[in-house]
Simulated assay, not measured.
Amino acid sequence: MRILAAMSGGVDSAVAAARVVAAGHDVVGVHLALSSAPGTLRTGSRGCCSKEDAGDARRAADVLGIPFYVWDFADRFKEDVIDDFVESYAAGQTPNPCLRCNEKIKFSALADRAVALGFDAVATGHYAQLEDGVLRRAVDADKDQSYVLAVLTAEQLSRAMFPVGDTPKEQIRAEAEARGLAVANKPDSHDICFIPSGDTRAFLGARIGVRPGAVVDADSGQVLAEHEGVHGFTIGQRKGLGISGPGPDGRPRYVTAIEPETGTVLVGGAERLQVLSISADRAVWTSGTAPTGPIEGVVQVRAHGGIAPAVVEAVGTGMQVTLREPLTGVAAGQAVVVYRPDPAGDIVVGSATITATGSVATTEPLGDR
């Protein structure tokens, strides 16, 4: 097979490329330039797609003896990932840009170009298992990335390869060293790749500007503080609320709802964060077909955590989730991913974008946020 290996400059994608080369495939390496003005160096484990990363990817390709190219996707990345991220926060939502990048860039724009050039599949360093169209959690639970891949359609999965998903990270680093790859001990990248400073509020503020609103007590309706924009808040946030001290009951207060139309940020006790139902839209079913009846499974609402047993039903273009156990900090804009438990690795059934939740405290839908 002709395989296009997406090489970020990190250890995982380097070993993934090495494995497809070792398997006898015809492999070409490609690094995606996602920034119109990439930095020369990364800041520790923050950021990616720097000139340093491109150089590391090229050196890995040289060791593997494969052709290597840099493809410019900066404009597409800005439009489909960065702009979407900013617009979602401006609307009071909490998006995950890694999902959007996988959906729109790596397995859409990149894969489409790969197919047009005669490649059969795109191999990446994601930690997930994929066989015969079945997407599973990775063997290394701490590194599992199936959550951010659950947005992929059956067609997109049919032309994807995840060569490192069956191996713990520690062994991947050892393999990289044994293969003579200089990135064997390179730190993993964390946080949002296009915000290397880690200051999301400042990044959003520079693009959205000041949009004044009020921080309001959800129980009494009392205005507790003023703020400069709902983009500075997420559901479940406790610090940086601009209020003095805990609530009247002496307990901490958290962001419990965001109303972008009025600029209102509601705060209250932790009990208001617990939800038992989730409504979501833009469902993607891994099999390519929506289920015809209820699914007993497990759902996950964050990349690292937020997992609970649930019953899931397809409803129109989305899904309705009834949780068997309450989850906290569930926000509109996040993805809810449905898994079917399996000893070989939980199987991804589908995903959708959260639009509303039902609260344990009120048992009433909190509505779109």
Rank of each mutant, 00 (worst) to 15 (best):
A6W: 00
M7N: 04
G9A: 13
D12F: 10
V15K: 05
R19W: 01
V21F: 05
A22M: 10
V27H: 00
S36K: 15
G39F: 10
T40Q: 13
L41E: 06
R42V: 10
D56V: 07
V63T: 09
Y69A: 14
A74S: 08
A74W: 03
E79C: 07
V81M: 13
V81H: 03
V81Q: 09
F85I: 13
S88H: 11
A90I: 04
G92C: 00
T94W: 10
R100F: 04
R113K: 01
G118F: 00
H126V: 02
V134S: 05
L135P: 12
V139C: 06
D140V: 01
D142Y: 12
A150G: 07
R159E: 02
M161D: 01
D166V: 06
D166M: 04
P168Q: 03
E170M: 10
R173N: 09
A178I: 01
A184D: 11
D188T: 13
P196A: 06
T200R: 11
T200W: 11
R201T: 15
R207Q: 11
A218Q: 10
Q222P: 13
V223G: 12
G232N: 09
F233P: 08
L241G: 02
G247C: 09
T262D: 02
T264E: 13
T264S: 15
Q274D: 14
Q274Y: 08
Q274S: 10
A303E: 12
A308T: 13
V315S: 12
V315Y: 07
T317R: 15
T317E: 15
M319E: 00
V321H: 07
A331L: 05
A332S: 04
V338G: 07
D346Q: 02
V348Y: 03
G358H: 13
A361H: 15
T362L: 06
G367N: 08
